[in-house]
Design a binder for these strands. Sequence first.
DNA 1: GAATTATCTGTACATTGTTCATGTACAGAT
DNA 2: ATCTGTACATGAACAATGTACAGATAATTC
Lengths: 143, 143
Amino acid sequence: MADEPSEPVAIRLQAAGHRVTRPRLAVVAALRELGEHHTADEVHAHLIRRDTPLPRTSVYNSLVLLADLGVVMRADIGPGAVVYEAADAWHHHFVCRSCGSVHDVPCVIGTPPCLSPGGDVGRVDEAQVIFRGICRNCLGDAQ
Amino acid sequence: MADEPSEPVAIRLQAAGHRVTRPRLAVVAALRELGEHHTADEVHAHLIRRDTPLPRTSVYNSLVLLADLGVVMRADIGPGAVVYEAADAWHHHFVCRSCGSVHDVPCVIGTPPCLSPGGDVGRVDEAQVIFRGICRNCLGDAQ
DNA sequence: GAATTATCTGTACATTGTTCATGTACAGAT
DNA sequence: ATCTGTACATGAACAATGTACAGATAATTC
């Protein structure tokens, strides 16, 4: 379970000049075990269930760092929710306005930044696309 | 000031089967006066300064409805912040990871949905793009 | 103008994320 | 082997943001 994907997390941390610590490894492991998209507090809860608890702040700190390094993906899908994901391929998200479910949408380019703004705004590191609409399930249910 | 852009807000509310109420008109007016991007609480504060206060809940309710109707634009630019804007043309946003400033990025298509996901996820109403990077000011400051 | 009902209002709360002070563990120098 | 500086973890309290609810109000319909 939880095989290292491309580059082991430890190597990537070191390469960026950061330390390899228990909280950081635990957070990545938790995201892999959970799969899909999860909030920081869901990761926190999972670690408690797993009997490897971590302070909430540590989970937040680790997620921010890991996301900045590109080890985990962060998606701002709307009010009161930032979700993280242990994914390798850069992709986007579809959010259902009815049930709130989140689905992955492959990115045709594959690596950020996959789009570029028209004007000259500065250095663009990534372009995150959020699709909104009604998912197939909800379309079937009502109307 | 605050001329009606294309269709008056009142008409658009009625057309969608909603009532034309003071809070809704006040929220749109506030967004126009403020210009740019602002949070719900900033709108709330502005209305107090203007001596036309509104309960915070009413501001939130109105913004959600107005955004769903497409009268105002909503942008999820990251943790702890949903910003609204009284804009006519559909566009995207660039967020600076250093100073947090938000800049408009024109959309080449102009009307949502300007992109479409690859697979068949359901009905897509809009595609919101968030560009992240370092803005020109911050690039100039420190390297 | 009166009835109907969506909407407003205000309070209280839940959730999410951040700040801060303290303690700890690692790495290089002595 | 010990010292020293720095990055990091920890825990608690805080701040910001968004939501639920129940009674009062006002926009529309007749």
